[in-house]
Design a binder for these strands. Structure first.
Lengths: 226, 226
DNA sequence: ATTTCTAATATTGTCGACAATTTTTAAGTT
DNA sequence: AACTTAAAAATTGTCGACAATATTAGAAAT
């Protein structure tokens, strides 16, 4: 059989080869190991993974549906190119969608999620104090925050759209434009206020604060780009 | 050009077989010719279209990424099941995204789009008067409206998310739950106000009106479901 | 040297066959 | 009859080969 050993994600027993290729390639694209804008050669990649072109193509199509690849008929696939415009569009969607996620989370007010959010916040607070200002681990902590809020919305379509379709591109921009946000303390305060609004069941406020938070984050990134 | 290319497989010269299968199957699923919840048999469909399973599978994967199919490894694909919850989630996303689209359209205020929107509105007004109350063609007119607003946002990611990823599911619900909206006049007035806000460059108001419009539309549908 | 056309090369699209897995059928036991 | 178990059938996953298309290389002409 086509043994296709993929190094990192080799845990779940019954997932398909195409799925493992997909996960591996997704990581490499996000991290820039496969450069943004570069052409994808099906024969070359298939050889590299000891897989057939068929299985590889399935992985490529899934990457396309994530917006990480662009395919053209009879021409092939390229890794999506990063651009300031692309980043802006991404953040405009995040503003709308995560704002809605906040509103829904506040309307749900599930005890379990509330507790979860509180615990996360105090974990982050400790890291804050530890690293005072340097905010080294902030990117991951930030993802943690946004990820959990979205989960708390309980809207599966919203969760899928953000966590699968959008966040990998956000990660890609962060990795490759290398942003260790200097607004850690401020971001933490904003996170804190958002969670308070959710706890209070004030969906309107929670949405407003989240939108403001994402807008600020976007402007911060845009400033950095010059 | 609008929404017209929905039901037309088999003309463009250089598109792949998989693409044509995709378009055909998409239409059949949306219209319920392939019933919601039913199992997809790859061999059977491949025979029906005189295509290989490979090409068919590519089409199926694209349908999956549209959220019209659900695939499970080693088991196969099923057409997505319609549910009240699914419809609610869809409309919550629309509220957030089309609200944003309105805001962006108002910030752009492209002369061309503005003119376009005005013309569309007066076309709809005439149909309104003609069919006074019966609102036969309303579903298509309504799609026309939302479609053009989204285009006017100039955010490609937003456009793709709504027009490709979400609208086909909306259409599917409309077709199969068969809704000839009785709120035609009211919807027309709301459309009218939204476009006025966009013309005035008032993004905040445009967003608010669109969100209210979609919420009302959702509640109207939900009432019908009982 | 630059451009245009043509031939060679490489890449993508499509197919049919085989392997791995699941689902169905049937037999056997309590 | 209901429940397990085992064999059979059908379905999905994977592969290698061929056809259609695009890209590259090279020759001819200006």
């Amino acid at each position: 059989m086509g043994v296709a050993e993929v190094n990192s994600p080799l845990q779940e027993p019954h997932q398909s080869l195409a799925e493992r290729l997909f996960l591996t390639l997704r990581a490499e694209i996000v991290e820039g190991k496969i450069p943004s804008g570069s052409k994808i050669s099906e024969p070359e990649l298939a050889r590299r993974f000891n897989a057939s072109r068929g299985s590889l193509r399935e992985a490529l199509m899934r990457l396309e549906s994530l917006g990480l690849l662009e395919r053209r008929v009879n021409v092939g696939a390229r890794v999506v190119k990063l651009s300031e415009r692309g980043l802006l569009e991404l953040y405009e969607l995040r503003e709308a969608l995560e704002g809605m996620a906040c509103r829904l989370a506040a309307e749900q007010r599930s005890e379990e999620d509330l507790l979860d959010l509180r615990q996360m916040l105090s974990r982050h607070e400790q890291q804050e104090e530890l690293q005072a200002g340097k905010a080294y681990f902030q990117p991951e902590g930030d993802f943690d925050f946004h990820f959990r809020i979205v989960q708390a919305s309980k809207n599966d379509l919203l969760i899928d759209t953000l966590c699968n379709r959008l966040y990998y591109r956000v990660r890609m921009y962060r990795y490759q434009l290398g942003m260790a946000s200097p607004r850690a303390q401020r971001a933490f305060r904003e996170h804190s206020h958002i969670i308070e609004a959710i706890e209070a069941g004030d969906g309107e406020l929670a949405e407003l604060l989240m939108r403001r938070h994402i807008r600020a984050s976007r402007q911060n990134i845009e400033n950095k780009l010059r």
